[in-house]
Amino acid sequence: EEERTFTNEEEARKAKKEAEKRGLRVTVTKDGTTWRVRIG
């Protein structure tokens, strides 16, 4: 499991799409101005 943080919503969405392409489970949460993308 890996967690990545982004300040840019577009980049967070891109990371989510890429992980889904690899067949991984992805959770995206917004924490104030930060987007957290949890993969795995």
Rank of each mutant, 00 (worst) to 15 (best):
K30N: 10
E11Q: 07
T27W: 09
T5W: 14
T7G: 07
T27V: 09
E1Y: 15
E18G: 03
E9L: 11
E10N: 09
E9Y: 15
E2D: 08
E11V: 03
K14P: 01
T7R: 07
T34A: 08
V26L: 01
T34S: 08
T33E: 15
R22C: 09
K30E: 06
R13D: 11
N8G: 04
T27K: 06
G23I: 01
K30L: 11
K21V: 08
L24K: 05
K14N: 12
V37L: 12
E2M: 12
R4Q: 11
K16P: 00
K16T: 10
K30F: 15
R38V: 15
E10H: 10
G40N: 12
D31V: 12
E10M: 11
R38K: 13
I39G: 02
R38I: 15
L24W: 07
T33G: 13
V26A: 12
K16I: 15
E1T: 12
E20S: 03
T27M: 07
D31A: 05
R13I: 15
W35V: 03
E9T: 02
R13S: 10
I39E: 03
E10D: 11
K16F: 13
I39L: 06
R25H: 13
V28Q: 01
K30R: 11
E18I: 06
R22Q: 11
A15G: 02
V26H: 00
A19K: 02
G32H: 03
E20M: 07
K30H: 13
T27I: 10
D31T: 09
K21Y: 08
F6I: 01
W35T: 02
E1G: 12
K14V: 09
V26R: 00
G40A: 13
R25K: 13
G32W: 01
R13F: 15
G40D: 13
V28L: 14
W35H: 02
T7N: 11
W35N: 01
G23D: 02
N8L: 06
K17L: 14
A15Y: 15
G23C: 08
K14D: 10
R25D: 06
N8V: 06
E10W: 14
T29A: 06
G40T: 14
T34H: 11
E2S: 11
R38Y: 12
V26Y: 01
K21M: 14
V37P: 02
A12W: 04
W35F: 05
F6L: 02
T7S: 10
K14S: 09
V26T: 03
L24F: 12
K30W: 15
R22W: 08
T27L: 06
K14R: 12
E9A: 09
A12G: 01
A12P: 00
R4G: 05
G40I: 15
E2F: 14
V28Y: 03
R25V: 11
T34L: 15
K14W: 10
V26I: 03
E1N: 09
T34D: 07
T29V: 12
R36P: 03
T29R: 07
R36M: 08
I39D: 01
E2V: 13
K14I: 11
G32A: 04
G40Q: 14
L24H: 07
A19S: 04
T33A: 12
E9K: 07
V37R: 00
K14T: 10
E3I: 14
R25E: 08
T27Y: 09
K16N: 01
A15W: 15
V26W: 01
A15I: 06
T34R: 08
R38S: 12
D31P: 00
V28A: 01
V26M: 02
E20C: 05
I39H: 03
E1K: 08
K14E: 13
V28D: 00
K17Q: 14
K16G: 14
V26G: 03
E18S: 05
R36N: 06
I39A: 03
V26K: 00
E9Q: 07
R38G: 04
R38P: 01
R4K: 11
N8Q: 05
R38D: 06
R22H: 09
E2W: 15
R13T: 13
E11Y: 04
A12I: 02
D31S: 08
R4M: 14
R4W: 15
I39V: 08
A15K: 03
K14H: 11
V28S: 01
D31I: 13
R25P: 08
T29L: 09
V37E: 02
L24D: 03
T34M: 12
L24Y: 10
E20T: 04
R22I: 07
G23L: 02
E1C: 12
W35I: 05
E18N: 06
L24S: 03
T33R: 06
E10S: 10
E18Q: 08
K14M: 12
T34F: 12
V26D: 00
G32Y: 02
K17W: 14
T33Q: 13
G40P: 04
F6Y: 13
R25W: 10
K17D: 14
T33K: 10
E20I: 07
W35A: 01
N8K: 06
D31N: 07
A12L: 04
R38L: 14
R36S: 06
V28K: 00
E11N: 05
K17G: 08
G23T: 00
E18A: 08
A19T: 02
K14F: 09
A12Y: 05
T7K: 07
T33V: 10
T33N: 14
D31Y: 07
K21E: 13
K21Q: 12
V37S: 00
K21W: 06
A19W: 10
V28F: 05
R22L: 12
W35Q: 01
T33D: 15
A15S: 04
T29F: 13
A12M: 11
